[in-house]
């Protein structure tokens, strides 16, 4: 897993797992039903338009709140390719990596990235290119042992290999 290409989607500070997966959907047994509610209180069209916004750029403390991993699982099902945030809540950070979605910490601001900007990310180089605005950003590379989880497509796949 190195090059990631997609379109930017912008979110603010303190986006909680309650925002991503509202409690009332948590007992839904059909994940395809649950994904329709992703971020519904913030943007009811998020899941419909995700192909034009599949790299999340968020503010501080992204994924705060409940440990509910559904809040990462719905992103995975919708094809979200990476999450870039100024900071992550710790459980959410782990859940992203464990599901094979890169979690990138970066001090970015609204002058640098806009909705639907064309984005390319190189995890190995620690580089984000905003093609729409002809700008680049360097980020601190993801530690090797977490990269290994990402390369395996998540911790469950990695564990499966180890247990064999």
């Amino acid at each position: 897993m190195d090059l990631i290409k997609g379109y930017a989607y912008i979110l603010g500070d303190d986006i909680s797992t309650d925002d991503i997966v509202p409690s009332h959907t948590l007992t839904m047994r059909d994940s395809n039903e649950m994904v329709k509610h992703t971020l519904e209180f913030i943007d009811p069209y998020f899941s419909k338009n995700v192909d034009r916004g599949n790299i999340i750029f968020a503010g501080e403390n992204f994924g705060t709140g409940s440990s509910r991993e559904e809040a990462v699982h719905v992103f995975k099902l919708l094809g979200v390719k990476a999450v870039v945030a100024r900071s992550f809540a710790r459980i959410y950070f782990r859940n992203l990596i464990n599901n094979g979605i890169p979690a990138i910490s970066l001090n970015w601001d609204l002058n640098q990235v806009a909705k639907e900007d064309v984005i390319e990310i190189s995890l190995l180089k620690g580089l984000i290119i905003n093609k729409s605005q002809n700008s680049t950003f360097n980020f601190e590379k993801i530690p090797e042992f977490l990269m290994d989880i990402l390369e395996n497509g998540g911790v469950i796949n990695q564990l499966k290999k180890i247990l064999k």
Binding site: E69, I91, R94, N98, N99, V155
Partner: peptide, 8 residues
């Protein structure tokens, strides 16, 4: 922790 970490 989340569900995958519980599995680990």
């Amino acid at each position: 922790i989340g569900a995958t970490d519980v599995s680990v």
